[in-house]
Write a protein that binds this DNA or RNA. Structure first.
Lengths: 252, 252
DNA sequence: CGTTGGTTTGACTTCGATCAACCAGTGTGG
DNA sequence: CCACACTGGTTGATCGAAGTCAAACCAACG
């Protein structure tokens, strides 16, 4: 069971995305103990799967660098893309409930992940309250994130959904030290569509719409966000799809 | 801080829904220690809120009996109903990530909840591995549940969504020892609509459709599921909304 | 009783799905 | 080298599911 320390690529302690990741808020000595749970980083080639639905849970994975998508198919062949994961994001936490992964995790570019033996993580987090709390927060965060996505699907039209999606990506890029104004998409239009509950043609048209309004510049995978403010304000006024039906304002 | 044990209504140990709830899989002595974290059950009247968005997290709540809905409003007045909670379901886990609740929790009937001091729960779960694991599983379960809902919104049409919703309710009734064939809805059509990303008129029409097909009998809040099998099979054949576009089958 | 909140049904409109054509790269084999 | 297939992206025309607006219905209740 014991791994030779020299095999470990690097420690969590001086990882670029440490604060966003599991060791965020955990002090350095303890972060090193977490790092010791990671046998060795794994390289995943573009298009390859990290795990499949029904595989038994042994590890959860942190994306070290690269980009993933997670998606699942229902019995009758419908696909839902549940999320895109970038560095410091966790993969596999859906598996904790049943002990088996519920989705596919596919690398969208050559990537590297840190596998963490889950039951060892549970044991260690009993010893380290800050790690324990961080894990709980990450799980809860995932719930909130999914609820946000739900809100997009339930309340926003195609253009607004795409706008929200781009702003979300932008914010996550910024968290990781990249420019929030310009970045490259790692996924296809079809992936975006499967994520937002649309079809790829509709995503294209939504892009054309935002471009036409001068809110973004998008050609191929290259995105430039011209105005975060105006993009955010997309839904606020103008068309009112599925907003709360307000009580009529009676002056008398 | 110490509460007189005599104040505690009852213990978790002989609670009807113990296995579904946090003490599920935790042995009786330890379940009693969990019960000791619950100062006293709280009664919530129909229509009242258990908490509001931005309230600081102190307790998470287990529904002991009754029925709740959780929903949130975005800045621009759009509402998304994130879920319905019945006995043994947890309320407030969305708050763990930021320390503040992100949604409203409203009782749909007179209800009773078990408040659990969250930071004490974290401390106790460090001592009791089985409790710790159960908490992780419940959090993960919530992620999976939301992903399921996402799949409904992204891939199913109105009738299929309603069918899936009714089957889900039915399964949860059964888990709790009630009949899966007939039960009462505690929520309005508008609540169902806000949950499924539809409008109430569309929910009404979807009900009429299922009734017309002889799959359910619904009048007012009373639901009878005539055939679980045929209800499940709703999407499987026939119309193919948003299914995977299959590669054309070339014989040559 | 009339009021009120929830539900149902109808007529019409609209957003996004569908089907189809076409384009830009990119790789492959003759 | 060119012909070609192939993948991903864009745009147009058409259609249908669900949204919107409106009216009516019903049970509960003061």
């Amino acid at each position: 069971m014991a791994h030779c320390p020299s095999l470990r690529s690097e420690s969590c302690v001086n990882c670029r995305v440490r604060e966003l990741c599991l060791p965020g808020g955990v002090d350095s000595a303890d972060a090193q103990r977490l790092a010791n749970l990671i046998p060795q980083r794994m390289k995943i080639r573009k298009g390859a799967a990290l795990f499949h639905p029904a595989d038994p849970l042994r590890f959860i994975y942190v994306v070290h660098h690269g980009f993933f998508k997670t998606s699942f198919l229902s019995a009758d062949g419908r696909e839902q893309l549940t999320g895109f994961q970038m560095s410091a994001d966790l993969l596999g936490i859906d598996a904790i409930s049943s002990g088996r992964y519920t989705c596919d995790a596919i690398a969208l570019e050559d990537s590297e992940v840190c596998p963490i033996h889950f039951s060892q993580l549970e044991v260690l987090s009993r010893e380290l309250p800050s790690l324990h709390h961080k894990l709980n927060r990450i799980l809860s965060q995932e719930v909130v994130r999914n609820q946000q996505l739900l809100m997009w699907m339930g309340n926003l039209n195609a253009e607004e959904r795409l706008g929200a999606f781009l702003l979300d990506l932008s914010a996550r890029m910024q968290e990781r030290g990249y420019s929030p104004h310009a970045f490259l998409l790692r996924m296809t239009r079809e992936d975006i569509a499967a994520h937002l509950g649309l079809r790829l043609e509709t995503v294209c048209r939504a892009i054309a719409y935002l471009r036409g309004k001068g809110l973004v510049r998008i050609s191929g995978r290259a995105v430039e966000i011209v105005s975060h403010e105006r993009l955010k304000a997309l839904g606020t006024s103008g068309s009112t799809p599925r907003k709360l039906r307000l009580a009529p304002v009676n002056a008398g």
